[in-house]
C-alpha cells in the first residue's frame, strides 16, 4: 500500500459541494466508476485477490472491507476535530485495525469455516491502501455522514470489480457459482484449471481492467 501518492490523487477529485443529495450521488459515481480504486488506480487488490477463486470467499472479504472502510471513515471523521495532526496516521491505523479485529473475532466465533478459509487475508485488510487513502483524502476533513458514504461507495466500487473477477474464475475453473453447479459448465465444459490457480487471477483482472478502461475511454470521448 502506498498511501501518499493515491491520497493526493484522490483529494484532487474529491467532491467538494456541500449540498447533501448531489454530494451523495457524486460520491456514488466517483467511488463506483470515475475513481474506482481497482480498475482506475489498481490499488488495494493485495488483500483480496488471493481469495477470488471462490465467489463466496470473495463476497465475505468484500463485505468486510466495505464495512471497515465505511466505519473507519465515519470514526476518523467524528474524531477529526480532536486528532492532533502529527499522530493522525497512527490514529487512523488504530481505528482501521480495531474494525478489522472485530471482523476477525466475529468470524472466528460464529463462522469458523470461513475464518479458516480466509486465513491471514482478513488481517491484511489493515494494510489495504484504499481504506487509509479515503481516511486521509476525505474523511479527516469532512463531516461524518458524507465520509461514511464516501467510504461505503469506495468499498462497493472495489467489491464490484473483485466479484467480477471471482465469478468467471469460479465458473470457468470449477463450473459453479457460489458452489452451485451451473448448467453446461458443470457437465459439458472442460474445466480451465488454471483459472482457480493464482495465474488465473492475474489474467482475469488484466482482461477486466482492459475491458472497463476501453469502455470508460469511449464514454469520455463521446462526452468531450
Amino acid at each position: 500500500m502506498m498511501s501518499a501518492d493515491p491520497a493526493r490523487e484522490m483529494t484532487a477529485s474529491a467532491p467538494k459541494g456541500p449540498k447533501k443529495e448531489s454530494a451523495l450521488g457524486r460520491a456514488a459515481i466517483e467511488g463506483l466508476w470515475n475513481n474506482n480504486p481497482v480498475f482506475r488506480q489498481v490499488l488495494g487488490i493485495c488483500s483480496t485477490l488471493a481469495v477470488t477463486n471462490l465467489v463466496l470467499n470473495t463476497a465475505v472479504m468484500c463485505l468486510a472491507l466495505t464495512g471497515t472502510t465505511a466505519l473507519s471513515c465515519l470514526t476518523v471523521s467524528l474524531l477529526r476535530e480532536w486528532t492532533p495532526h502529527r499522530v493522525r496516521m497512527m490514529v487512523q491505523t488504530l481505528i482501521i485495525a480495531f474494525y478489522v479485529i472485530l471482523v476477525d473475532i466475529a468470524l472466528k466465533a460464529y463462522w469458523p469455516d470461513m475464518s479458516r478459509n480466509l486465513g491471514p487475508y482478513v488481517g491484511l485488510i489493515i494494510t489495504n491502501c484504499i481504506i487509509m487513502g479515503r481516511c486521509e483524502a476525505f474523511a479527516r476533513s469532512n463531516p461524518p455522514v458524507p465520509s461514511f458514504f464516501d467510504g461505503l461507495f469506495c468499498g462497493l466500487g472495489y467489491s464490484f470489480v473483485l466479484l467480477l473477477v471471482a465469478v468467471p474464475r469460479e465458473l470457468l475453473g470449477m463450473g459453479s457459482i457460489l458452489g452451485i453447479p451451473m448448467p453446461y459448465f458443470s457437465t459439458g465444459w472442460d474445466k480451465w484449471i488454471i483459472m482457480v490457480m493464482p495465474p488465473g487471477a492475474f489474467f482475469t483482472l488484466a482482461c477486466l481492467i482492459w475491458a472497463l478502461r476501453a469502455f470508460q475511454a469511449r464514454g469520455e470521448e463521446e462526452s468531450a
Binding site: W82, T83, P84, R86, V87, M90, V91, L94, I95, F98, I101, L102, I105
Partner: peptide, 21 residues
C-alpha cells in the same frame, strides 16, 4: 496532548476488543 490522546484512544479501543475476545 498528542501523547495523552494516543493513550486514551488505544485504551478505549483495546478495552472493547479485550472485552469482546
Amino acid at each position: 496532548y498528542p501523547v495523552l490522546y494516543m493513550f486514551v484512544m488505544t485504551a478505549f479501543f483495546s478495552s472493547i476488543l479485550i472485552g469482546l475476545a
